[in-house]
Write a protein that binds this DNA or RNA. Structure first.
Lengths: 245, 245
DNA sequence: CCGGCGTCGATTGTATACAGCGTATTCAAT
DNA sequence: ATTGAATACGCTGTATACAATCGACGCCGG
């Protein structure tokens, strides 16, 4: 059932590539295609943010019509956003019944840590020769920020900086799709991360030491060692979480 | 708009339900919750199948209204399906303009092989102690099927069996979410896999030898070695693809 | 007390209608 | 000839309306 749209009179010659760069060097501005912002996208981001921030707890219901009414839009874009969130694993849609926020079982949790360990290590192995001095500086700054926030008892800020630290680690690899997977896995765990830190009351000191290992390896230009270090870091984080629960 | 509850009291006509299986001993059947099948799901599977099988080539347009008309449904479920396919990377939605089938750049391709290598290796490492003799037999059978199909010149069948071989490798790990990621990555590459094999006319002989390595390691119970072997296999497959292109 | 049965209300699923955007075409102005 | 505005058309985006389904409640007869 190929969509044969042979009924249009004029064959619209669609350029294979968007061909944004005309002649002038407008390339650097508008690197992104400058897409239109649809209500569906807004709804998606709205709900996703709420999910990641833990404002919607696992098991809780999401009523499309209520969301739509609150946002002043119709249900259609909300439903579409929910479909996308379902395919990302954030919610579960029970047809004709309801939409509930997905949780993670103990097993799924463990699996996610394994996944992240493997992918973070891949990122660092692939980062060989791509690490700019400025990046190292930024990583150092983030590491310092975590330390400061931790000592100040500002757990939320420490967690936030930790997230930025890791994202930066991923991104030096230049592996965009891997980063996207990692980001998604990370975000789905965010709820539990917040819970855990609230429960133990502080950001783990061991975590800082492990970051230090990674940084040292990177500064020495030894990405293989850094990869092993980040893998250990992730697996230990898993154990820490397990014992907190 | 408050929900008007002036629900008319029409006696619903009840138009002859699809007559589900009569009340038999439905205990063991229907172990799965038997979710309702929505049009959106059907549309999703329909389009996804067409994409994976290469009936829709990258760059080609997908017109929601045409698909809907062909399927005899409205555009809404089709649009929802397309949203899901977009979040999985299969298509790209240009708001108010069109929906096009996504391709993969050379870089993205390479990245996907790295991703698969890392995850397949993870699966095999995690498979330690979970490999039933029956599984090994099935793997052997698939390996044999690939060989037979290859010698018979039935490339399509060899490719299909190769896919089943790998999926089985993944599944012994029991890591469902990782398997899902792998499946998605694999499926998105299916189009190119078909193209490549059509171009070179046969299934690679080296691939069989590399499978053999994996199998030998598994039969010896050495999952670590199997993990290394599958990683090599994947990276060599990447090189083979590169030189074919 | 209890189990079947019908109804109701809540919620999602889908069709239809229309609005809005993007692109090509046309045509006037420079 | 090139540029710019106006227009037409195809497509997607969204609102509204209605249908289908599920779960709960209550009625009723045992």
């Amino acid at each position: 059932m190929p969509p044969r749209t042979a009924r249009s009179r004029r064959p619209r010659p669609r350029p294979a590539a968007p061909a944004p760069a005309r002649q002038a060097d407008a390339g650097s501005l508008f690197a992104a295609p400058l897409r239109h912002r649809t209500l569906e996208e807004l709804a998606y981001e709205h709900i996703r943010t709420a999910l990641v921030q833990g404002k919607l707890a696992p098991g809780q219901r999401i009523v499309a019509s209520a969301v739509a009414r609150a946002a002043g839009i119709s249900r259609i874009p909300v439903l579409q956003a929910l479909r996308r969130l379902e395919s990302e694993g954030f919610v579960r849609i029970n047809p004709h019944r309801d939409v509930v926020v997905s949780g993670l079982s103990r097993e799924e949790f463990r699996e996610r840590f394994l996944l992240m360990a493997a992918l973070e290590a891949l990122c660092l192995r692939e980062a060989d020769g791509k690490i700019a001095p400025a990046t190292l500086q930024q990583l150092r700054a983030l590491q310092a920020e975590i330390g400061v926030a931790r000592r100040a008892g500002d757990t939320a800020r420490a967690v936030s900086a930790d997230g930025r630290f890791h994202r930066m680690l991923w991104e030096v690899s230049g592996l965009r799709q891997v980063v996207q997977v990692l980001q998604n896995v990370w975000d789905r765990g965010e709820y539990y991360r917040v819970i855990m830190h609230a429960r133990r009351g502080s950001f783990a000191a061991e975590s800082l030491a492990e970051h230090e290992e990674i940084l040292k390896a990177l500064e020495a230009g030894d990405t293989a060692r850094a990869a092993r270090a980040v893998e250990r870091h992730r697996l230990r984080a898993m154990e820490r979480l397990a014992e907190t629960t």
